[in-house]
Design a protein around this nucleic acid. Structure first.
Lengths: 228, 228
DNA sequence: ACCTGAACACCGTTCAAGT
DNA sequence: ACCTGAACACCGTTCAAGT
């Protein structure tokens, strides 16, 4: 199990700071590799990302990748961080309504991960890249201005992190095709005998993911931020 | 990405209901395989589980496993479900104090997963086995008696699921050796320039995981269960 | 600096065969 | 019913070499 690190090191031989204009563009570049990796991950999922297939899509030999990245792990780290880049305007975040700002931050984060369903499950296992650290920094700032004491800030951020990650990982893994849906329904009907409460709640069937997410978030915020 | 199913099917050729006493014990058994898989997973993590290594530990050829299980996926499913078996007494759960009962259910669930750090990350991706369904059924029952309306039960269960899963997955992946700890500390010190709020909150450093977990859970329950 | 093919050391699993 | 070894079709990555 890879130990958790914070941030990503650049262990490549040497990288020029700015590309010399006279030099011809290399066929491969970190940016192209990462963008293509994201495409491939979106299309085929985590286990669909293979170095040879990635190289194929890029029109290069499999081994060419290894000049740009150290290994497959680094491809995952880079793809993950790229997907977590904040692309919205900063308007919402500077809203005087802190509650609205927190909702925007967390829902945008969640939406970014759901756009790339492989990303959420990956995030807790990998080093925290700069884009996610930026989002957490922003969250901390808003919570601070909302009145969360410095001593409680760590706990507040982690509570929200835990909730967002749990909700998103669960949602992202719950991609049911219609046939799966049907099969699950039949199975649950059968299971209702053994699990009556779950059956009555129609668990796994009528899941209003977004509604549940917002509601739980309200509850957490009510508790985290002292006076309302 | 494997689609989510509910429950696990038994596709093995034929299984006798009760072992004929006169027949000699087979060298392998599902139980031994699963128990050994859990051992191996505990020792080496998800990527450490290999069919050949598992067979080695069992003192058999690699291919012998395939008479008992369909494939590696099934080994994961079975190991996961076995780890989620409830081993406590049912006393706590029948406590008249529903809040205490919910806490016991969720903390025992969380503890079971933390005892096998590979399990939490696996759970949302796999079919729900009978042991986890049993825990959810129990949770639903307690929430019901606590006064949660039937229409809100689905949302209540999922809110808690999301929170527990997020907290546990994050915690389980955060196993820092001392050197990692030190490296992270230095890195964060360096990062404090870019992320001052995070730095001040000592995020990633002073994490009182259990305390944060309980606190957030209190907040959620305050919101989920109407009158206190 | 950047890219390549051959080759190695694995993996999960199929198959045909043993007892 | 239960177990096995040989073999196949992959994988990630090392290496020595090309331009």
């Amino acid at each position: 199990m890879a130990a958790k690190r914070v941030g990503t090191q650049d262990k490549r031989p040497h990288r020029k700071a700015a590309p010399v204009p006279s030099a011809q563009e290399p066929r491969l570049s970190l940016e192209r590799i990462v963008a293509t990796a994201v495409e491939l991950l979106d299309a085929e999922g985590v286990e669909g990302l293979k170095m040879r297939r990635l190289a194929d899509r890029l029109g290069s030999g499999a081994m060419s990748l290894y000049w740009h990245v150290a290994n497959k792990e680094e491809v995952f780290d880079l793809a993950l961080d790229s997907v977590l880049e904040y692309r919205g305007s900063s308007q919402m975040i500077e809203s005087p309504d802190w509650r609205q700002a927190v909702f925007h931050i967390l829902e945008d984060w969640r939406a970014s991960m759901l756009r790339h369903p492989w990303s959420a499950s990956l995030l807790p296992r990998r080093a925290l890249g700069s884009n996610i650290l930026g989002r957490l920094e922003l969250l901390g700032r808003v919570l601070s201005t909302a009145g969360v004491e410095e001593a409680d800030l760590n706990g507040a951020i982690w509570s929200l992190w835990n909730y967002v990650m749990g909700a998103t990982i669960t949602r992202a893994n719950f991609v049911l095709s219609d046939e799966d849906m049907l099969a699950g329904q039949q199975r649950l009907a059968h299971l209702s005998a053994e699990y009556p409460t779950i059956g009555r709640a129609r668990l796994l069937l009528d899941n209003d993911w977004d509604g549940v997410f917002r509601k739980g978030l309200e509850f957490l915020l009510d508790g985290i931020v002292p006076s309302r």
